[in-house]
């Protein structure tokens, strides 16, 4: 049982009229991992998540969440998953503690309220009404509501949208803490640094299909080129630089992409040092998950145009 994946999707399909939102998507999420699901708006992300959560019916394919078809989930299954919905809010008239107490009553074996409040980082707001919380605090309460049932699998839909940088770091600690508790986390986010920081694996969806899947490091490693940037020295033609190819100029700096950054840099720096030239604003960078993502989906709004046509 424990060897089974937390989520198995095989050939999932879903259309709205003539528009195919999800086109034969397959995916496996192992137990105990933090899995980030990325993609532009309209790519089929929300549809897929809502099918996994049992809110939408699929048109085709096989789906198992904790070994159960979400369309026939039932209460016992619901008791084992926690959901942070992007939409909606808790009732503003109740306090944080009252809201969590009510939610705890829904579950067969809830986590203690005090512990959940600490986990969500709301110790100082426990007696405040939900209506008086800031956006970030409400989102933390949402995370608390998803965790109060002590679920095995947690769906987090854009859990840090609208957070300030400090609150995001705090939320990341909470989410990373879920892994230590042995929970499986299915995370959708627009923040690629969030996915890179938290996720064991990521999948990028585009136009209803998974276009790439793997560990964040493996995805960026798959891109062979390291970028080297520097201000081209005055009085030296770009074609005179001792580099394998003529660099491009990007934002006032020369940009090189190379699969052999060590030797390229050694040659370049040796050449500059010999001439007493300082390479201004020299920078060497590996592609981030964001670069990989943008390369895959940049300028890509096909779903929106297809939906409109």
């Amino acid at each position: 049982m424990s060897g089974d994946p937390a989520i198995e999707i095989d050939g999932l399909r879903k259309s709205y009229g003539a528009f195919e939102a999800v086109r034969g998507l397959s995916l496996i999420v192992e137990r105990g991992e933090i899995f980030a699901f990325l993609g532009p708006n309209g790519a089929g992300k929300t549809t897929t998540v809502e099918i996994l959560e049992g809110f939408r019916k699929r048109d085709g394919g096989d789906v198992r969440v904790l070994g159960v078809d979400p369309e026939h989930g039932g209460r016992a299954w619901r008791g084992r998953i926690g959901i942070v919905l992007q939409e909606g809010r808790a009732q503003s008239e109740l306090t944080v503690r009252e809201t969590l107490t009510l939610w705890a009553a829904y579950y067969p074996k809830p986590r203690p309220i005090a512990e959940t409040i600490v986990l969500a980082g709301l110790e100082e707001k426990a007696e405040d009404r939900v209506g008086r919380l800031s956006g970030g605090q409400r989102r933390r309460l949402d995370v608390g509501l998803a965790l109060v049932g002590d679920p095995d699998l947690v769906f987090l839909d854009e859990p840090t949208t609208g957070f300030d940088p400090v609150a995001r770091r705090a939320a990341w600690k909470v989410i990373a803490g879920l892994r230590d508790l042995g929970k499986t986390v299915f995370l959708t986010t627009h923040y690629l640094d969030e996915a890179q920081e938290l996720a064991d694996r990521v999948a990028i969806i585009r136009a209803g299909c998974i276009v790439v899947e793997g560990a964040p490091d493996a995805l960026t490693a798959g891109s062979p080129d390291t970028e080297i940037l520097f201000v081209a020295p005055p009085g030296v033609g770009l074609d005179e630089l001792p580099v394998p190819e003529i660099p491009q100029i990007v934002d006032g700096r020369a940009r090189l992409q190379t699969g052999t950054p060590t030797s390229t840099l050694a040659t370049l720096c040796g050449w500059a040092a010999e001439r007493g030239i300082e390479l201004e604003r020299l920078e060497v960078r590996r592609p981030s998950l964001e670069d990989v993502y943008l390369e895959l989906v940049d300028g890509d709004e096909p779903a929106a145009t297809e939906a409109a046509s």
């Binding site: 959560e53 809110f55 209460r75 016992a76 619901r78 008791g79 959901i83 919905l85 939409e87 909606g88 809010r89 808790a90 009732q91 939610w103 009553a105 829904y106 579950y107 067969p108 509501l145 049932g149």
Partner: peptide
């Protein structure tokens, strides 16, 4: 109000009958 604010959907996401 509960439907439009998403409260009902959130309750639906729990095991409560």
């Amino acid at each position: 109000n509960a439907r439009e604010s998403g409260t009902l959907k959130r309750q639906r996401a729990t095991p409560v009958a």
